[in-house]
């Protein structure tokens, strides 16, 4: 398009034309990088699948089926992963239940109500929480958070909820005096995922056009009603996405959880008892495995965790799509 000047025929070679504007190399580079990501995910999945082949054929479905009397005894070649699957699920879900309301509150405050002078420091603080290494959370957890916060909170939960039929199963106490329990892991995870959920939710709320707020107020809604009935539904898909992001982080968190959960294969499903998660059993046992089957069983746990996060992400996508269809604009996180 740049000129009609006569250019020697030779400079019009197809190769040269393809590279002249730089579009093709860019395209190639970007496609290459995208394929690399895809290959990485497939490669990890394949390796986990392949590395656990013997365990899968030797242990079968019993390996991941729920049971109250699971055996994980590498010395005797007995492997059942349910206690770890349960531990991961219950601590992550409990963390989400605790973290979403708090994060939502902080995000609404930051986006809608916060005076300007407080906004920056508060933003910093929230982001700082995300920057603390998880091993530091673990240390702080063992020496401060568990004895001071988790133990009293756990005791209160036990006395209030522990005797309700059905729900009480989750709150059968008493909590160990050291505080090492699934509840401790869930509460540490809560603190760790609050920054993720808060930051995304805040950005979602800030991305909502002002016309929505003005429309709400113009209809006579109070500020509270505007936030609750206009803004939150509008940003629902993004907020769901934020929660799923948090859940993803909670599922895979290893170090802090290992340090506070008690690493004990319990038959009780209670939150107030010590437990174990998939990530922590792998971290704990992989370096000193007893037998080939033990290694394979640990890799199979990795496979289950991998599949779980994949399914969760698919589920999250579906949720976000459904929610996005209901909201008027294409607001996404």
């Amino acid at each position: 398009m740049q000129s009609t000047k006569a250019i020697p025929r030779s400079s019009y070679s197809p190769l040269r034309r393809a590279f002249k504007h730089g579009d093709r190399p860019w395209q190639g580079l970007i496609v290459l990088v995208s394929i690399l990501v895809l290959l990485l995910v497939l490669g990890i999945g394949w390796k986990l699948w392949q590395g656990s082949a013997q365990a899968r054929s030797a242990l079968g479905w019993k390996f991941i089926l729920p049971t109250l009397d699971a055996n994980w005894n590498p010395a005797l070649d007995q492997f059942q992963a349910w206690p770890f699957i349960y531990g991961t699920l219950i601590t992550s879900l409990a963390a989400i239940v605790l973290a979403v309301p708090i994060s939502l509150g902080v995000a609404v405050f930051l986006a809608e109500l916060c005076p300007a002078w407080l906004r920056l420091p508060l933003n910093w603080m929230v982001e700082l929480l995300a920057a603390i290494p998880s091993v530091v959370y673990g240390l702080w957890g063992i020496f401060v958070f568990l004895p001071r916060v988790v133990v009293p909170f756990g005791e209160a939960l036990f006395s209030v909820l522990g005797h309700i039929p059905l729900l009480g199963i989750l709150f059968t106490g008493p909590i160990p005096l050291s505080g090492s329990s699934r509840l401790a892991a869930a509460m540490i995870l809560t603190i760790m995922i609050i920054p993720t959920i808060t930051a995304v939710t805040r950005d979602v709320l800030l991305a909502i056009p002002n016309s929505q707020r003005e429309a709400g107020l113009a209809l006579g809604a109070t500020r509270w009603e505007t936030i609750w009935q206009v803004l939150l539904p509008y940003g629902l898909s993004g907020i769901l996405g934020a929660a799923i992001l948090g859940l993803g982080r909670a599922l895979g968190e290893t170090m802090a959880v290992t340090m506070v959960i008690g690493n004990s294969i319990e038959s009780s499903p209670s939150l107030l008892k010590p437990g174990y998660t998939m990530a922590s059993i792998i971290a704990n046992e992989f370096s000193e495995t007893v037998s080939g089957l033990h290694t394979q069983a640990l890799i199979e746990i990795g496979l289950v965790l991998f599949a779980m996060t994949l399914i969760l992400n698919l589920f999250a996508r579906l949720l976000v799509w459904r929610a996005a269809r209901r909201t008027p604009q294409e607001v996404r996180a």
């Binding site: 055996n71 994980w72 005894n73 590498p74 010395a75 005797l76 007995q78 004990s264 294969i265 704990n284 046992e285 000193e288 495995t289 007893v290 033990h294």
Partner: peptide, 10 residues
């Protein structure tokens, strides 16, 4: 009866 090894079930 839990056996012996680098990891056992307690």
């Amino acid at each position: 009866t839990a056996g012996h090894g680098t990891t056992v079930q307690w």
